[in-house]
Every structure is written in structure tokens, then in C-alpha cells.
Write a protein that binds this DNA or RNA. Structure first.
Length: 597
RNA sequence: GGUCCGGUAGCUCAGCUGGAUAGAGCAGCUGCCUUCUAAGCAGCAGGCCAUUGGUUCGAAUCCAAUCCGGAUCACCA
């Protein structure tokens, strides 16, 4: 239990004892960190008690304050200011917290919940390379997986690859006509980019053909259907579904190129999966379920033979689940996959990392599954995140107005190199170490940039403004971490092995020291909130604040020249804990921290 | 039009389960490296928390209305 929670519990107990018979609801008890301008560490708000207890703030304040001093064991003194009870926590409490956690190598890790949680993320289309917006999805999914793992869940990271459909055929058709047999090997172009180029090519040609047909007097909506290249793509899709040997062969080849490209990108990003699902394997699964739902009378059939679900009672619309010709739609596939995933791993929770443009779709999916009586309906959680936009609006791969993920990674690493060299900080590194450092800094900055904002908010990225390496960034945290490592190196201390069995608290803890211990104490509850809210930005904010506090501490206190041995040990324990917590928090999100920079 | 999401410093964002004088970073301005890493620290300046009303001892936070921006409401995925 965190200290703030202990204070709440004690306050509840105190009120029960002081005012027997008056049931104070837990919601009436609020505990905040004390504002810096007042003395104290935590503050209990007294206003909510006044009416129910028919008393005044200073009366109840001193009653509760006395109770805390006498019974809590951790409060040394208190002050009542207006309606606030400011509690000062004993230095001994902080010291013993520190010693205890210092010797706990798993601080920040929760015991197992016994729950199986799947996080589906990334889920790319195999017709184009990843762009900046996809990065947010990938980082979010990976970070949330780490957070759920740290809070004791068994996590399965899943990737549902969208490897079939008309959009895939578009790249294939264009490649057939315009590539003259070009391959990643023959051109030296990364496979996903090569295929993406032909997706763009398809759209160029398509647009041109539509224009020509319109110029010949055809209606635009008809022209869009009649353009030869579009018809060809549709034919190809039909051929694929029929298992046409040549089409399937080409499909396998081109998807293979894309996977090779994706693998490189995933590896550079430090992102991985425990389970791959391919839509080509799963797209037929939902049909059976839908037909069963039809039998049960949960769904209904229209005259033309198409199958629908009526969600009007839920305030939504009617939704098609099977076409008149019996083929599946997107929703049907997702119904099948949801059940498949659920059964594959006996899931307690199934998280979908999907952009907020699909909120409606996910809502419908969940409702349909519920209507069908599928237990997986209740396990679904849509982690809906806002899209990354350019100042000019949304990225459109069809129009080629995207910030490419691979380019972005290169740019970030190049920037890390440039700034390290400019600062003259390359000494004492081998060439290989430098390469690794630039990657750690560049990728860290990129990940942090995309994770530090509340997932549900959309964000605007201006490619003209580079991602900063100062201030609220991973670099800032990495730098603080490197400083700690440097201190330890100079002191000859191994942070994983150092123990302080003789530590005694000899004098008062200073404000800068206390700020750090207080933050360290809050780490677990921050991690829990991040898990509850599926929100890595909480960890980003927390870790940044910890780094800030460390830098201030570093400025006013010396470790090497500490006033005495007790202070030195105290500070060593503090900074080692800070380094560990930073490493744990960032590591959870896939951001590495260097020992030196 | 229905539904949903957002509007906080010049810019990017915290704070939103109601609590003290609304916080960071960037950009701007002052200081601070013969002392454990200045990718840092300390400070200055910058706000009608979109608007209006309501609830309350207390509202950026909750409710209602309005304005602005976005998403979505496909036999696309």
C-alpha cells in the first residue's frame, strides 16, 4: 500500500474512533501531496468532514493531527492551515522505506494476477511501409504490454497482419504492369518500400484512367468503377479467393518482400510479438459464427439473402455481417478473430490498439459478440488512440504525403550523432559504442515523443521541426541516468551488488533528498494507474519529474564529498534507486538508458 | 443531422474520480562550468483554463446550452 493510501486508511480509522456512528464515505477522504509553500509531505483535505461532523476545520484538524502523531507511526508533526491538515512524515519512515526497497530487486514489479492479457497492436497492411502514425501504434502497444506485464499479467503480444484484400491486389496489379520484374534484390529497395511504391503507382494510374473516362463523357462515379486497372485489381482479388495458382504465387512473393522489410523495421524499433495472426488465415472464420447467430434468431436475413444485425436498441444502426453472395465483410472477420484469440489463450482481457477512427467499429464488434452470447465480448478493451497528423492534415499514403517510419528513425539517429559530436562528447567511446549510443538516444527520443502524450489525444507533428533532445524528452532522462552511472563508476560502486548493512540515519533528510525518496515511493502507484488507464504517458511524466528532481539534487548535493559517511550512504542508496526506477520505467516502454553519454 | 472526442502560456502538453496562489518543456530574457557529465541548474517574463449559465464552503475539473476543430455513421478495411 502506498503512503498516500495508508494515510487515507488511517484517516478513516481515526474518524470512526473519534466520531463513532458517523460513516464517513471513502470518497470524502482526499489526500494530496503538500504544496511546496507549506510545511509537510501529505495533506488531508478537511472540508468534506465539516458538515457531517458539525465541527470546525481547526478542531477536526488538530484532533486528526494528534491521532496521526500518536497512532500512525509515520507522522512526526502536523499543521492545520485553513481547511487543510498538513502532515509531516518522519525521516525514519523515509529511511526505512529506502532501505527496504533498496534491498528489493523487483521494486516496481507486481506479483502475478494470474490473468492472460492479449495486446494486439501494429497490425499493418502489407501494401505499404510503416509511417509515422503507425509508430504511435507500435510504441503504444509495446509500452502497454510492458506495463501490463509489470503489473503482474501474463501478456501475449499479438500482431494481426492484414495481408489480403483489394488494397493488396492494387500493389500486385501495378507491379505486374510497371515493375518489369523489379525485386528488392535487383533494385536494392527495402521490400515494403518497393511494394508501397507500386501501391502509389496504382493510384496514379487509376486517377489518370478515371480522368480520361470522365473526359470521354462518362459519369465520375461510374468511371471510378469502370477504370480498367481497378477492374483488374478486383478480378485479381476474385482469382486470389479462388486460389488461382499464379496470383497466389505473386501474392506470396510480394508479401514476403514486405515481411522482410517489416522485420528490419521492427528490429530497429526494438518491437516484437509473441503471436502472429494473418488475415488470410482468419478471414473466413466469422461466417460460421454469424450463421449460428442466424439460427438462434439473434440476427436476421434480408430478402436478398444478406445477413444483418439490428443494434437499434443500443442506439446504433443496422449492420451488415454477410453479403448477399455469402462473402464476409470486415466485421465478420473480426468476429471470428476475436473468438479465435480468446480461445487460443483463454484470455481474461483482449486489448486492441486501434486508432480512434474505428471507435464505432469496435463498439459494434463488442455489441454483436455480446448479442451472439460470446464470452469474449466482455474481455475486449479498445485502446483507442488519436491519430498523428501533419500540420496540413492527415497523412495519406495513396498521395504519398507521409512521414516514412524508416526515414524518421534514420533522421533521429543522425540528429543524436550530430548533437553528440557538437557537444564534443564522443571521447572514450569506441566507434561501435557510439553507433549504439546514437541509436539509444535517437530511438529513445522518438519513442518518448510519441508516448508522452495521452494516447486518446490526437497529435500534430510538424516534420519541419525536428524532435527536440532537450527538456521533456527521453534524452533528459538518459542524461540523468548517465550522470548517476558516472558517479557510481568514480566511486567504484556496482549498483547491482552494493549493500549498506551499517547504514544509519544520522541527520535530517534535506528537501532535495526527500523529494527523490517521496517520488520513489510513488512509483508503484503510478505504474498501477498506467496499467488501469492503459496510459504510458503517466510513466513518461513521472520519470521526467524524477529526472528533474535528480538534477536539482545533483546541483546542491555532492555524493563524493558528502558531509559524512551516513549522508554518503543515504545518497548512494537514493541515486541507485533512482537509476533503477528510471531504468525500469523506461525499459517497460522499450526505451533504453545509456551508462555513459 | 445523430453519436463520440477535443479546446489550458506564442508553440507542444500536464493537471480533469472537485481542494490552497493553474504547472512543465520549447521559444525569449538574466545569472551559474579550476568542484561527482552545463544534453544540466537557478531565476524573469508569459493565462478571462473557448463562451455563458448552473451545482457547491470551494469549479480548469461536475451538469446544461452555445461557439470552434476533429472522427464516425459503407455490401472499404
Amino acid at each position: 500500500m502506498s503512503l498516500a493510501e495508508q494515510i487515507k486508511a488511517s484517516a478513516k480509522q481515526a474518524l470512526d474512533e473519534l466520531y463513532p456512528g458517523t460513516e464517513m464515505p471513502a470518497s470524502a477522504i482526499t489526500v494530496n501531496q503538500t504544496k511546496p509553500e507549506f510545511t509537510g509531505d501529505y495533506t488531508l483535505v478537511l472540508f468534506p468532514f465539516l458538515k457531517l461532523l458539525k465541527t470546525k476545520p481547526d478542531v477536526i484538524g488538530s484532533q486528526l493531527g494528534d491521532y496521526f502523531v500518536q497512532h500512525s507511526g509515520f507522522v512526526v508533526s502536523y499543521q492545520v492551515v485553513a481547511g487543510f491538515l498538513n502532515l509531516a512524515v518522519k525521516d525514519e519512515y523515509w529511511a526505512s522505506f529506502l532501505v527496504q526497497r533498496y534491498n528489493d530487486n523487483h521494486y516496481g514489479e507486481q506479483g502475478t494476477t494470474g490473468k492472460n492479457v492479449m495486446v494486439e497492436y501494429s497490425s499493418p497492411n502489407t501494401n505499404k511501409p510503416l509511417h509515422f502514425g503507425h509508430l504511435r501504434n507500435n510504441f503504444l502497444g509495446f509500452a502497454v504490454s510492458g506495463i501490463l506485464k509489470a503489473t503482474g499479467n501474463h501478456v501475449i503480444k499479438a500482431n494481426l497482419v492484414n495481408d489480403r484484400g483489394i488494397h493488396i491486389c492494387k500493389s500486385m496489379v501495378a507491379w505486374k504492369h510497371y515493375a518489369h520484374g523489379a525485386t528488392p534484390r535487383s533494385t536494392g529497395i527495402k521490400g515494403d518500400h518497393l511494394v508501397g511504391d507500386y501501391y502509389v503507382k496504382f493510384n496514379d494510374v487509376y486517377k489518370q484512367q478515371v480522368e480520361e473516362l470522365v473526359a470521354e463523357g462518362m459519369d465520375e462515379t461510374i468511371a471510378e468503377k469502370e477504370a480498367p486497372i481497378m477492374k483488374e485489381a478486383q478480378n485479381m482479388l476474385r482469382a486470389w479467393e479462388a486460389g488461382d495458382k499464379d496470383v497466389v504465387e505473386l501474392w506470396k512473393t510480394m508479401n514476403g518482400w514486405v515481411y522482410e522489410g517489416f522485420d528490419i523495421t521492427y528490429q530497429r524499433l526494438g518491437i516484437d510479438f509473441d503471436k502472429m495472426y494473418y488475415e488470410s488465415n482468419t478471414y473466413l472464420l466469422g461466417k460460421e459464427i454469424v450463421l449460428k447467430g442466424l439460427e438462434k434468431g439473434v440476427l436476421y436475413k434480408k430478402e436478398d439473402g444478406s445477413v444483418w444485425v439490428n443494434l437499434e436498441d443500443e442506439g446504433l444502426d443496422q449492420k451488415l455481417l454477410l453479403r448477399a453472395d455469402g462473402t464476409s465483410v470486415y466485421m465478420t472477420q473480426d468476429i471470428g478473430t476475436a473468438i479465435l484469440k480468446y480461445n487460443d489463450f483463454k484470455l481474461d482481457k483482449s486489448v486492441y490498439v486501434i486508432a480512434d477512427e474505428q471507435n464505432y467499429h469496435m463498439q459494434v464488434l463488442q455489441l454483436v459478440l455480446k448479442k451472439l452470447g460470446e464470452p469474449c465480448a466482455n474481455a475486449i478493451h479498445h485502446l483507442s488512440y488519436g491519430m498523428v497528423e501533419l500540420p496540413t492534415g492527415r497523412m495519406k499514403s495513396r498521395e504519398g504525403t507521409v512521414v516514412d517510419a524508416d526515414d524518421m528513425i534514420d533522421e533521429m539517429i543522425a540528429m543524436a550523432r550530430q548533437q553528440t559530436e557538437e557537444a564534443g562528447k564522443t571521447e572514450g567511446f569506441t566507434e561501435k559504442e557510439l553507433e549504439e549510443l546514437y541509436e539509444t538516444i535517437g530511438l529513445g527520443a522518438l519513442k518518448f515523443y510519441l508516448l508522452r502524450v495521452d494516447p486518446k489525444k490526437k497529435m500534430i507533428f510538424d516534420p519541419k521541426e525536428s524532435i527536440d533532445l532537450h527538456g521533456f524528452t527521453a534524452t533528459f532522462i538518459q542524461y540523468a541516468h548517465a550522470r548517476i552511472c558516472s558517479i557510481l563508476r568514480k566511486e567504484g560502486i556496482d549498483r547491482n551488488a552494493a549493500v549498506f548493512p551499517d547504514f544509519k540515519l544520522a541527520e535530517a533528510i534535506t528537501p532535495a533528498e526527500k523529494a527523490l525518496v517521496l517520488s520513489l515511493e510513488q512509483y508503484v502507484s503510478v505504474m498501477m494507474s498506467a496499467a488501469e488507464e492503459y496510459n504510458p504517458s503517466l510513466l513518461c511524466n513521472y520519470t521526467f519529474q524524477l529526472a528533474q528532481q535528480f538534477n536539482s539534487f545533483y546541483d546542491v548535493h555532492s555524493i563524493a564529498k558528502a558531509e559524512n559517511e551516513e549522508k554518503k550512504q543515504l545518497r548512494l542508496m537514493i541515486i541507485i534507486m533512482v537509476a533503477r526506477v528510471m531504468g525500469h520505467a523506461m525499459g517497460t516502454m522499450g526505451i533504453r538508458l545509456p551508462e555513459k553519454m
